[in-house]
């Protein structure tokens, strides 16, 4: 499996929680959120693909969004996490710890 494909597989099921986690500080402009997630080129490689994900999270009641006029330029869409989103992040954090430890254990044995 090539690197890009492997990352795509690993992102599936984890990226949505990273998006939710990145909304920890309250309301945020989507563009900033995406820029942060894409900064290292690991979690997000194509910024545009985060928008369908955000739209689904909104439909699932994990986030809420508002369009706000900005002083410089066009209106921007801001997102905030709902209580349901908070709970989802907490749950994922627990499960991720267990998952990561299990993978690390096996990988350590491999070395």
């Amino acid at each position: 499996m090539e690197a890009g494909q492997l990352l795509t597989h690993l992102r599936r099921g984890t990226l949505e929680f990273c998006v939710l986690a990145a909304l920890h500080g309250g309301e945020r402009y989507a563009g900033d959120l995406i820029a942060e997630l894409g900064a290292d080129g690991v979690l997000v490689t194509s910024e545009g693909t985060v928008y369908p994900l955000l739209a689904r999270l909104r439909r699932d009641g994990m986030v809420e969004s508002t369009w706000r006029e900005s002083a410089s330029g066009p209106p921007r869409r801001y997102y905030r996490r709902t209580r349901r989103g908070d709970a989802a992040v907490r749950h994922f954090t627990d499960q991720w710890g267990i998952f990561r430890d299990a993978v690390d254990r096996v990988l350590t044995e491999e070395q």
């Binding site: 402009y29 563009g31 910024e47 545009g48 928008y51 739209a55 900005s70 330029g73 921007r76 869409r77």
Partner: peptide
């Protein structure tokens, strides 16, 4: 429509910035 609007707004805002 939602995706087109989001992407279009993203481009507008990125250009403004």
């Amino acid at each position: 429509r939602e995706i087109l609007r989001d992407i279009s707004a993203h481009i507008d805002a990125a250009l403004a910035d």
